[in-house]
């Protein structure tokens, strides 16, 4: 297992290295780095000084190494607007985004697996067909559109839930969270549902497909032949089998949730890092933009790593192969 993790860590490092190169090339080479990194208000003299200070007169590989070195020390530039380190700004907003994404993930799994299994167990029932129609809609409707509709219905017309913001928060282990108070939950609910819909549709499809496949396997029939109760067959034999693809995909999709929270946060004015990004784009606060992209790439690589490890723990066949290798 340790060998396995070490090998995966090395692979992850390679991907981060490669992606940092891409982001660097993207921002520093394709775009004009002076435009991207220096405030528009700067005068000619400032620009000259900044170009020298940033080493933009140096050859490409030197520039890249400098970028890497600074990034490794956590220096991703300073915000023009807030005049604070960009990294710090993003880290401050991160808990809000993570809370939103995790809550959405939880909703997708907790609702999606039972609904998908139901649809897989009784594929011809009306309920199953409604579930599947719903999941097609969940797949095809753009998140922002659904968000606007939800806001209009539940906040503007019915007035049940607050339309924007995060509401009351409290600190747990130094992190701001909102799920501890009723007000916080009321604010969290709509954005989280909105963000989860796409993944919910995905989990439903995966669970349904998995259930339909597993339920016809000989080992399910054999479990029945042992006299094992229907509940145990569904909750142990079927569930454990479909958990493997669901966990893998859901884990991989967590990155997608963080990425898509940009949209949800913009709709519901949720004070997370996605909203910060869109605000920064509007305000041309480029160091924050660059920092956000770097961080999210890093996040993706970590997520992929964790999913790989989780997957190997869940599926004994993979675990064994990896241990042998």
């Amino acid at each position: 297992m340790t060998v396995f993790i070490i090998r995966r860590l090395m692979q992850a490092a390679v991907v981060v290295f490669f992606m940092s190169f891409l982001v660097f090339s993207g921002v520093f080479v394709i775009g004009d780095p002076v435009d991207i990194l220096i405030s528009d208000e700067a005068d000619e003299e400032d620009r000259e000084r900044a170009i020298a200070a940033l080493g933009l007169d140096k050859p490409f590989h030197i520039q890249y190494l400098r970028f890497l070195g600074k990034a490794l020390q956590g220096d991703l530039g300073e915000s023009f607007i807030f005049e604070e380190p960009a990294l710090l700004l993003i880290l401050e907003r991160m808990p809000a985004t993570m809370e939103l994404a995790l809550f959405a993930l939880l909703l997708a799994v907790v609702l999606g697996i039972p609904l998908g299994m139901w649809a897989g167990l009784k594929p011809d029932s009306v309920a199953a067909k409604s579930i599947m129609t719903g999941s097609i809609l969940g797949f095809s409707l753009p998140t922002f559109w659904v968000g606007i509709m939800m806001m209009m219905l539940f906040a503007v017309m019915l007035g049940w839930l607050p339309s924007t913001g995060r509401g009351e928060t409290s600190e747990i282990f130094g992190l701001e969270v909102s799920f501890t108070s009723w007000d916080g939950i009321r604010h969290l609910l709509m954005p989280a549902i909105n963000l989860s819909l796409f993944k919910l549709a995905l989990v439903i499809r995966l669970s349904r497909a998995g259930t339909k496949e597993v339920i016809h396997q000989d080992y399910i029939k054999f479990a029945r032949a042992k006299g094992v109760s229907r509940n145990r067959i569904i909750l142990v034999h079927v569930l454990k089998n479909i958990m493997i693809p669901v966990v893998t995909v859901i884990g991989l999709e967590f990155g997608g949730l963080v990425a898509f929270s940009i949209v949800t946060e913009t709709v519901f004015a949720w004070p997370g890092m996605g909203k910060l990004l869109i605000d920064s784009i509007g305000l041309l606060d480029r160091p924050v933009i660059v920092a956000y992209l770097t961080i999210i790439v890093f996040l993706f690589v970590i997520i992929n790593l964790v999913v790989d490890i989780l997957y190997s723990i869940l599926d004994p066949r993979v675990r064994l192969q990896e241990m042998k290798a």
Binding site: Q217, Y219, A223, H237, K240, D315, P316
Partner: peptide, 10 residues
Amino acid sequence: DPMMTLNPVL
């Protein structure tokens, strides 16, 4: 079929 009668993940 002995290959298919036992649940692979249990």
